[in-house]
Amino acid sequence: MAIRIGSTLNALRLRATRQWYLGRALRRRKQVQPVRVLMKTVPRDAILCFVTQRNEAVRLPFFLDYYRNLGVGHFLFVDNNSDDGSADFLLKQKDVSLWRTTTSYKAARFGMDWINWLLFRYGTGHWCLTVDPDEFLVFPHCDTRSLQALTHWMSTSAIKSFPAMLLDMYPDGRIGDQPYRAGQNPMEIARYFDPANYMVHKNGRYGNLWIQGGPRARSFFGRTPERAPALNKIPLIRWKRNYAYISSTHMALPRALNIVYDEDGGERISGVLLHAKFLSSFIEKSSEEMERGEHYADSQEYQAYSAALQDDMTLLTGESREFEDWRQLEHLGLISSGNWA
């Protein structure tokens, strides 16, 4: 009985949380000003991709091509006051709707209020992928099957959300030794990842798994692992009007969206987001971001990076693996095809 009251209370609390976050997003809807909106032309079954970006002109060409190839039908970008011409570049694309904001990234819960609003307004009924410009989705069978095949299968299997944890990728030498040029596949430079040092904890209240580890945790947070950045993400959801992302795409509400793992020993389907953060552009970026102080937890993470960058950070170790394909990741146990044979 006590348990039942407890879980009912938790349910009510989560409902309030969800409505509060949704309310925030709706109140802040005026912060995102439409620049060009092409949503009327988007077919009802298109897969939508939601992105917040700031000065990512170098990364965008490859990013767009990558997701077009996977099968994304339309991109919804929020441009956070860029001054490097990335907005103009986006306006040249036929499959991009663009919004612009000049308000604080941090005050908008690191952009999630903006994205929640766009999801609320345009996402309902679509499969919606929410990623950053340095994140590249890899899912089981992605070399032979499109994202449509995946979402079709998930729809027929009554799966509402797809987990893909961040897999930090890094180059073999010092970061920045190999310059990245626009249009290049970032995984040509940042080819390596950590195979098996991920720490998993279950978050009882929200039901999600909290995953930390990888090169950032071992290099910068060895003595304070609890402060290492979260890697768990749920970037692909068949959106409904009452859904909301709570903390980045790490967790969403209602709670059922977070239960993407099996607790009886079986495996459900999952993928990864290859996180090509550690490129040459990262060095300029991290000093800039630290000064702006617009990131999570007082940009603690960026402070650690810039300290390490002083002495030429190298993330590669003898235990690193070179990325091959999704089968390699499945063999290592980082992703699973579940029962999608």
């Binding site: 944890m165 495996e267 699973s336 579940g338 029962n339």
Partner: peptide, 15 residues
């Protein structure tokens, strides 16, 4: 794999 999974594996979709 869906029902029993791989023994000793703890990850994002098997916990």
């Amino acid at each position: 794999r869906r029902r029993l999974g791989r023994p000793g594996l703890y990850m994002q979709s098997r916990f």
